[in-house]
Nucleic acid binder design. Structure first.
Lengths: 152, 152
DNA sequence: AGTGAAAGATTATCGGA
DNA sequence: TCCGATAATCTTTCACT
């Protein structure tokens, strides 16, 4: 485990909000030389605190305007059911989140699709592949907040 | 609106999964010169299809090991209630997602906290600030999938 | 921790398919 | 219009103080 001080946190905040900044810029913002910054960032990467850098795309502009949360119940407890479920979720690119919740048979799945017709296709795929005792969907009317930035 | 072809999509896929790659690498992967890549990426940025680049951090290593989904019901329909709610959500850094769902009074909120005690603090903050008719929380036992990559 | 220089990446411009 | 090449500029990286 690595210890993170106030300066590391400042750097992380910058990188979480915009990873395009040069070391010079980040240094200026956090009050450190470009080099001191670089060394800290490298350490944070090596420690796995910075997992990776990615581009965030606009779902609407890519025709993925509908977000849906799907609540599922497993058909039964079986050692391999969860493994198969996990694999299937990872296989389906529309699915952006899948969580096993408290209450052992309950799963919450978040997906991004084009529209209702597209959701229907996804729904059919899911029920065709996975044994479920219950499925119910709620649709997002308005995205009030969605961020990858963690509280530091 | 900009039209996106197969090569753009390939580039977007690369950038979604790893934005640290050099233009040379991306070019090699998609079968384009580093230059052609650069031009396409710039266009995609200008069109807002690439929103930004960010660093993704490891929540566990930052002491945010507990994810919770909170279901809320608004106390009433009022023009300014939603606005205040939205502002409050954006203000609270533990909250990583907030969605108004079908069923007009229903909201789903995703938060990342350290542990149950920390969730309790968040819960108290929420009910202190916002008028709600109902609040219920479900905790994530296992994160099966969570990605920022959109289906292209 | 900071300086400076080498290596590497990005950006702009140009001529050609 | 879009490609690839070349060249100028800016960034990252690293040895040294």
């Amino acid at each position: 485990m690595m210890e993170i001080d106030t300066l590391d946190r400042k750097i992380l905040r910058e990188l979480q909000s915009d990873a395009d900044q040069s070391l010079e810029e980040i240094g200026a913002r956090v009050g450190l030389s470009r080099n001191a910054c670089w060394r800290r960032i490298r350490q944070l990467q090596e420690a796995g605190i910075i997992r990776k850098r990615v581009a965030l795309l606009d779902p609407d502009k890519l025709g993925l305007g509908l977000t849906v949360f799907i609540q599922l119940r497993a058909a039964h407890h079986r050692p391999d059911w969860l493994e198969f479920f996990a694999r299937t979720m990872k296989d389906m690119p529309e699915i952006v989140g899948a969580y096993r919740m408290t209450g052992d048979l309950d799963y919450l799945v978040q997906a991004r699709v084009a529209d209702m017709a597209d959701y229907d296709r996804l729904y059919r795929q899911i029920i065709a592949r996975i044994e479920l005792s219950d499925v119910s969907a709620s649709f997002v009317m308005e995205e009030i907040k969605e961020t990858t930035e963690l509280s530091l």
